[in-house]
């Protein structure tokens, strides 16, 4: 089964956890949800989708990963700028 590149912001009894999908343990637990979201968002550039959950576990926000353009796209963009 392919690895799911997803990182969750999840309610815990003692705060808000940042946890990779399927992981046994949280990466880190924050007192404030906002701080947990800020940490989770840094994983976007590593290709992770960020899923922010409400305290009842339902999905509040689904944030797609940052996708960097490949070489072909960069060449086309440079060509467009130059012309």
């Amino acid at each position: 089964m392919p690895e799911v590149k997803r990182i969750h912001v999840i309610k815990r009894k003692n705060g808000w956890a940042v946890r990779k999908h399927g992981a046994q343990r949280a990466t880190k637990i924050y007192k404030l949800k906002e701080d947990a979201i800020n940490n989770a968002i840094t994983y976007r550039k590593l290709g992770f989708t960020v899923v922010v959950h409400k305290k009842d576990a339902s999905v509040e926000k689904w944030i797609e990963p940052l996708t960097l353009p490949n070489n072909g796209q960069v060449r086309r963009m440079l060509h467009k700028v130059a012309s």
Partner: peptide, 12 residues
């Protein structure tokens, strides 16, 4: 609880 959150995201 973590598995439940994973499940909810997968369903979503």
């Amino acid at each position: 609880w973590d598995k439940y959150n994973d499940f909810i995201s997968e369903v979503y």
